[in-house]
């Protein structure tokens, strides 16, 4: 066995350069076989998904845009502990903590809250580690199909609390559904 023929992967096949017979050298048989193969493909199911009309089925572990949750009384859950920012492999999360004043008790659940909470959507890789790290179950990656809108301005991709915090009416609806059950 020469060095050229050794196949470590076991996949290497020796090329045969045998002379073609007369029938083979006419190519006609081979072409006819090829035509049969291609015509079969004419009737197979097409794999294309016509995007705006049809959408691809989402994976059960699909992760969409983030949302900062509220509890059943509509207060923000986030306590600005910074664990999400710490766990974030893309370093997309920034936050600034502030102490809750007595008159803000109906707004924030814990004594400390995030006065600024920003996710840079250009850096975020939607891995979901922030969701796993959060001890207060404040941040979630939703199943939303809404993608981050394209923009020419980088600043626009830094999503602040106004875009991330769960809308109040959604929180109210959730609570109503829970009490109804």
């Amino acid at each position: 066995m020469s060095i050229q023929n050794i196949s470590l992967s076991g996949k290497k096949i020796e090329v045969s350069n045998k002379k073609m017979t007369f029938l083979e050298s006419l190519y006609l048989v081979a072409i006819a076989k090829g035509l049969v193969i291609t015509i079969k493909h004419l009737f197979t199911r097409k794999v294309t998904i016509k995007y705006p009309e049809e959408t691809r089925e989402l994976s059960p572990v699909y992760r969409g845009q983030h949302m900062l949750m509220r509890d059943d009384e509509g207060r923000e859950r986030c306590t600005a502990c910074g664990l999400c920012a710490l766990s974030c492999p893309a370093e997309a999360i920034t936050m600034k903590a502030e102490e809750r004043k007595p008159e803000e008790k109906h707004l924030y659940r814990e004594e400390k809250y995030a006065s600024i909470y920003e996710i840079n959507m250009l850096r975020c890789i939607f891995c979901g580690l922030c969701e796993e790290a959060c001890p207060k179950q404040a941040i979630y990656l939703t199943k939303s199909r809404v993608m981050v809108k394209s923009n020419t301005d980088r600043e626009e991709f830094i999503y602040g609390k106004e875009k991330l915090v769960m809308p109040l009416d959604m929180a109210i609806r959730n609570t109503q559904m829970q009490t109804a059950n």
């Binding site: 015509i39 493909h41 004419l42 197979t44 097409k46 794999v47 016509k50």
Partner: peptide
């Protein structure tokens, strides 16, 4: 269209 169909695609639509 035929190119697309023979390649399991849909083609210009």
């Amino acid at each position: 269209k035929i190119a697309a169909w023979l390649q399991d695609r849909i083609g210009p639509n």
